[in-house]
Amino acid sequence: MTLLFHQLAYEQRIFWRSREAAVFIFIFPLLLYVLLGSVYSDEIEIDGVAVPAADLLLAGLFGYGAANTAFGGLAIILVGRRETGVLKRLRSTPLPPATYIAAVLSSTLLIFALQALALVLLGRFVFDASTPANWLGFAGAAVLGVVCFAGLGVGAASLIRSAEGVSAVVNVVLLPMAFLSGSFGPTDDYPGFLDAIAAVLPLTYFLDIVDGVYLEGESLFADPKALGIVLAWGAVGLVIALTRFSWMPRER
């Protein structure tokens, strides 16, 4: 336990000292919220129900933030550390791999929790958005999002070969997914084939859950199908990680 906190403290120190990480991972979703929140004002009609744009975007960027922090952030950190030999070096120390992974995940969760809080405060005080109707469910959604997208992030890290390519791959996956799932605005007018793609993406279902807990005060478990799909995606990432993850750099 002491070792977990030791590693977590250093993970945090490394994250906040890195300008790229702090900007790309932490600031970017907040920045998008400010931009999109300034473009869409008033109310947006979704399935016949009028919802304040500021609320809808807050939920959308909460989802994007979870994917960006856990999927993008983890994939970039892990590939970078693997290819520079940091992971290999760690394997020769008495630090148990499970403790290391737990520290990296806790660090990711902590970063996202702070980001979600910043999003709620920004919404509340700048765009007059609602505060979460179910705070506990909202917090649970943050954990769920990090778990699912961290699983996918570690899975992706196992498949991505080079540290140079990782940022590009991550964004090619993340940005279209966020666009299709409705993180950046309503998707009601999208053509049918885009909806069909969106219907298999984890972020689509994660956003359904977030809308439920944030806007309607539902329980985190209100939509078992959505919950199941989100967890299944996380499990797919985990299975890839368990079969393909390596601590060693690729042979040069």
Partner: peptide, 18 residues
């Protein structure tokens, strides 16, 4: 065993920020 060995790899880097 890992308590008692030290390993210097041919190529390894550490986080430049610490």
């Amino acid at each position: 065993l890992r308590e008692r060995i030290g390993v210097v790899l041919q190529q390894s880097e550490f986080t430049p920020l610490l």
